[in-house]
Nucleic acid binder design. Structure first.
Length: 152
DNA sequence: GCCAACGTTGGC
DNA sequence: GCCAACGTTGGC
């Protein structure tokens, strides 16, 4: 089992939006970055826990936990010319983009802000706090996970 | 295969 | 709204 962190802009899709979905589950479409894709396609497995992170907002923060409930399958929005995620280089017989399904687990009573995370010496290796890191999906070590968890 | 130009991300 | 950092594109 591996631990993860996934970013989302709360204006587009927040943890409350996820909790309001049928079965509190949603497919993670629209990832168009190869590194992030590779992690979803090859490494994320059913049951893996995921920190849910709000980015591009007033207070960037980890706001809760989700888990992977369906392993990778083709991101069908890439096949749809009507979608803003359409990519004519992705074909159903050889998909370029993949996604997983995640399910709501928990919303923290108190979110853990990026500012706080940056001040934790235990997290200096976490990609999220590194300068210029734009990865929307990243691995979290077990030690990092437990450390962050201990604040919730 | 190099690299400049461009677009995007995302914190501040 | 600004801008640094980064990934991608496309001409050569």
């Amino acid at each position: 089992m591996k631990y993860w962190l996934m970013k989302t802009e709360p204006d587009a899709f927040s943890i409350d939006d996820l909790a309001a979905r049928p079965l509190q589950t949603e497919h993670w479409d629209g990832v168009r970055n190869y590194q992030a894709r590779n992690m979803m396609r090859d490494e994320m497995k059913v049951g893996d826990p995921v920190f849910f992170y709000h980015s591009g907002c007033k207070t960037p923060a980890i706001v809760g936990i989700t888990k992977v409930v369906k392993a990778s399958y083709p991101d069908h929005t890439a096949f749809n010319p009507e979608s803003k995620y359409f990519d004519d280089k992705s074909h159903p017989d050889n998909p370029r983009w993949w996604m997983v399904d995640v399910q709501f687990v928990e919303k923290f009573k108190r979110e853990i802000t990026l500012r706080e995370l940056k001040n934790m010496p235990e997290l200096t290796e976490l990609a999220l706090v590194k300068k210029g890191c734009r990865l929307s999906i990243m691995p979290v070590s077990e030690a990092e996970w437990l450390h962050i968890r201990s604040y919730t």
